[in-house]
Amino acid sequence: MKDPYTFQEIEIDVLREIGNIGAAHAATSLSTLLGVRIDMEVPRANVVGFEEITNQVGGPEAVVVAVFLQVVGEAPGNLFFLLEFDVAIKLLRHLPLSEEIGSAPMRETTIQNGTITRIVSLSDLERSAISEIGNIMAGSYLASLADFTKLHLEPTTPMFTVDMAGAILAYGLIQIGNMGDQALLIETSFFDGDEAIKGHFFFIPEPESLPIIFRSLGIGSA
């Protein structure tokens, strides 16, 4: 059996293009929503180990706001949209909503056993605002991916949480975990002019989806 994670150069290009197209549409949505210019980084398509996957967002313990959905249909996979917690707060302040948004006491510092720890929480309104942005972003990523590949791809209901990056991403890797210690990660980051709002898409196709994606785009054996 061919190792599903060994790619030709053209295949890597295609995977990057997938990250590019998906995130570009999502970034346009966000830009419209916030009324600010959003730029994108060049997408990366890498085969990574479990540990490396959280590096881009500040390590396994970094607190992130995450929207997770499963891609079902012809090329199943997992899609994450991640914002670092502080970035999510900045984003809330950009929204034309009530004054309370982004200024509520969302962070309490407590001292237990001599260690200072930050407990993070969001109000219901903040939660639902960020969650909705995430849904729009993830939905728009997936829609353009389906358009590009002409594959039938559907999202499950997006799920939302605020927690440690490691705990969240490992969850999406479970099915990949049944098979190996590595996953193909297509990653695109975007930011506004001064990098105040930086977000990340992680698309993790299941290994079986890869030949299907390649074929749909006319490369690889039929």
């Binding site: 607190v63 237990q112 056993n113 720890t117 930050r118 993070v120 605020v162 927690d163 440690m164």
Partner: peptide, 12 residues
């Protein structure tokens, strides 16, 4: 065993 979470702080 020390346990830390972002929503519940630290416990042992």
């Amino acid at each position: 065993l020390m346990i830390r979470s972002v929503s519940h702080g630290i416990k042992e």
